[in-house]
């Protein structure tokens, strides 16, 4: 029973990891760009929620309405002003600039908020659970996060396949040069892509703050989880990313069941094994 429970919790945890990963996947898909500071932006969102809650006293979920547009704006402006300058044939500039951001963000957060661990109180949601039988129950919060992940991914999918901007983003992913001949301004398109990815990062950050303790140094680990979910699922496939998140969550839960110190290591090892066995990911994008 313990094992079934662990797997169940792992699946739900995978929803959070999919939320971490969706933004990373989207930015790589459109711009061939890996944001090393991705995890730190999730942590910024968490602190953003902390500020909103501290200032207004509302339930953390309401903070989403401030954090998500705030992150989208930050993402758009940051992409237009800074990151677009780094994009080109050479992979070094975007990697190293965002790696620099990662260190800068962690240390600024450290100066402003100290190294103390924080957590947002979500009230009744934290303890409420739905009993399945005597020994297994599903927490309301993990369920809410998992459902949000489903909604976000379905929403992104609909956006990509049903709207004209979504179509342009897919075309940009295929061929950045030719899409300019369609009247699309790459600099703007990249700004939109980062804005959307950052909005998802905002959601992920609020949930991170509600679900676990966080401090300025936890960003890189979130980047690695997100990265692993993307690679396990296969590049350019958002439902695959969800599957990748779930596999990672389950691997961690099983690891934790063996030994609490083994949780994160088990996730990384599962990722490396899958990387060796299926280097293209479990669900590589089908070329149409």
């Amino acid at each position: 029973m313990d094992w079934i429970n662990a797997i169940l919790q792992g699946i739900l945890l995978g929803g959070l990891y999919a939320l971490f990963a969706a933004g990373l996947s989207l930015m790589f898909g459109v711009m061939r760009f890996v944001n090393v500071a991705h995890g730190d932006f999730i942590v910024i969102s968490a602190y953003g929620a902390l500020i909103v809650v501290a200032a207004t006293g509302v339930h953390p979920l309401w903070a989403t309405f401030v954090v998500v547009p705030g992150m989208a704006l930050l993402g758009y402006v940051g992409q237009r002003i800074l990151l677009n300058r780094t994009l080109g044939e050479d992979i070094l500039p975007p990697l190293l600039v965002t790696f620099g951001f990662s260190i800068i963000i962690q240390n600024v957060l450290l100066e402003v908020f100290s190294a103390d661990s924080q957590k947002l109180q979500a009230g009744w949601m934290e303890t409420a659970s739905i009993p399945i039988n005597q020994s297994i129950s599903i927490g309301v919060m993990p369920l809410l996060i998992f459902a949000s992940a489903l909604i976000v991914i379905a929403g992104l999918q609909a956006f990509f396949y049903k709207t004209s901007l979504g179509r342009v983003l897919r075309a940009t992913s295929d061929d950045q040069d030719t899409v300019r001949l369609m009247g699309a301004n790459n600099a703007k398109i990249f700004g939109y892509a980062t804005a959307i990815a950052s909005a998802v990062v905002g959601i992920a950050g609020v949930y991170l703050a509600m679900r676990t303790n966080f401090d300025p140094s936890v960003g890189p680990a979130r980047l690695l989880f997100a990265f692993e979910a993307v690679i396990i699922g296969g590049l350019g496939n958002l439902w695959g990313t969800l599957a990748g998140g779930i596999i990672l969550g389950v691997a961690q839960a099983i690891g934790a069941q063996i030994d609490p110190g083994f949780q994160i290591l088990a996730g990384h090892l599962a990722f490396l094994i899958l990387l060796v066995v299926k280097p293209q990911g479990l669900f590589p994008k089908m070329k149409g």
Binding site: V36, I91, F227, I231, L265, H268, L272
Partner: peptide, 19 residues
Amino acid sequence: LQGAYFAIGTWVIAEVFRL
């Protein structure tokens, strides 16, 4: 892993050693 993904992959490997 290639390019930027290689970079993050090396970080995962370092974490595996640390843990």
